[in-house]
């Protein structure tokens, strides 16, 4: 992985020793509006252990942060957490420098990866990390929880790839929960790979596809004028949720074709 030239390390890695029990590490990002200049600043930007965070060059008044994997992982036994908060009026975009790769641990216990996003009124958060790749033999539990104020905006993308090329997948469980104005707007769980409940690769669930992804857009204006449901080819659909948000769900044979579909969805939602 080559770091872009404008990567500047911010924050301190305080953990990082990986023993057999795995690593516990949390990255924290807080974005708020600088009242003097009107642009978004980052009063908290702290990585830890395998989770390093860099401020990268953003467009206009937004702040852009890139998650940089400082170690491989998550490995079995790891507990990684990313917490990001966009305070009132802030504009924050978070991406990652490379795919996250779930690897087996030494003792066979699962790894946990938690993402907690908070978006206050008038703020906008784009959470657009690279793919999560579930390597053969790994066992990862991912939870993504977004807490949104009534006038918050969110664009969130999650992509899971089951196995590297020509490799059977590991075990992967993901749960995506969105709370908007205090009520749950979306709660979705997907389990796949060896040991997952029956039928996960069958004609109702993944049907042999090796990449699955979601794109969520939450915008206050959708409350009055939600986009109409539509398909994007045979294996993706856009649907309004029961609130000011839409969800795009897509399956694809591989990561590249999945990304193409989700990129098309982003364009549609502009």
């Amino acid at each position: 992985m080559t770091a872009p030239a404008d990567l500047a390390p911010v924050g301190l890695a305080t953990a990082g020793v990986r023993d057999i029990a795995g690593v516990q590490a949390t990255a924290r990002i807080v974005a708020e509006v600088d009242p003097r200049r009107g642009s978004t600043v980052l009063p908290v930007l702290a990585g830890e252990g395998p989770l390093a965070v860099r401020r990268t060059r953003g467009a206009g008044a937004e702040a852009q942060v890139t998650l940089v994997g400082a170690m491989s992982g998550p490995l079995g036994g790891d507990h990684l957490t990313v917490e990001a908060e966009a305070r009132a009026g802030a504009r924050l975009r978070i991406g990652s420098a490379a795919a996250t790769i779930a690897l087996p641990g030494q003792a066979g216990e699962p790894a946990h990866y938690a993402v907690r996003l908070t978006v206050e009124d008038g703020a906008e958060l784009h959470w657009l990390p690279e793919q999560l790749i579930s390597v053969h033999g790994s066992d990862l539990r991912v939870t993504t929880h977004a807490e949104l104020a009534p006038h918050a905006r969110l664009l969130l993308r999650e992509e899971q790839v089951l196995g590297r090329s020509d490799e059977p997948p590991g075990r992967l469980t993901t749960r995506l929960t969105l709370r908007h104005a205090g009520r749950v707007l979306l709660d979705q769980e997907l389990a796949c790979g060896p040991g997952a409940p029956g039928g996960w690769d069958g004609p109702a669930v993944l049907g042999g596809h090796r990449a699955v992804g979601q794109l969520v857009a939450v915008r206050p204006e959708f409350a009055d004028d939600p986009p109409k449901p539509r398909t994007l080819g045979e294996y993706a659909a856009l649907t309004p949720l029961a609130g000011p948000a839409v969800l795009v769900t897509a399956v694809a044979p591989d990561a590249l074709r999945l990304r193409r579909t989700l990129d098309e969805a982003v364009r549609l939602l502009r």
Binding site: L190, P197, V205, R230, T231, A237
Partner: peptide, 16 residues
Amino acid sequence: AASAPLLEISAEAHGG
């Protein structure tokens, strides 16, 4: 909250 992506995708297609 267990979900099935293909059921969701094809439900939107079928609806049309």
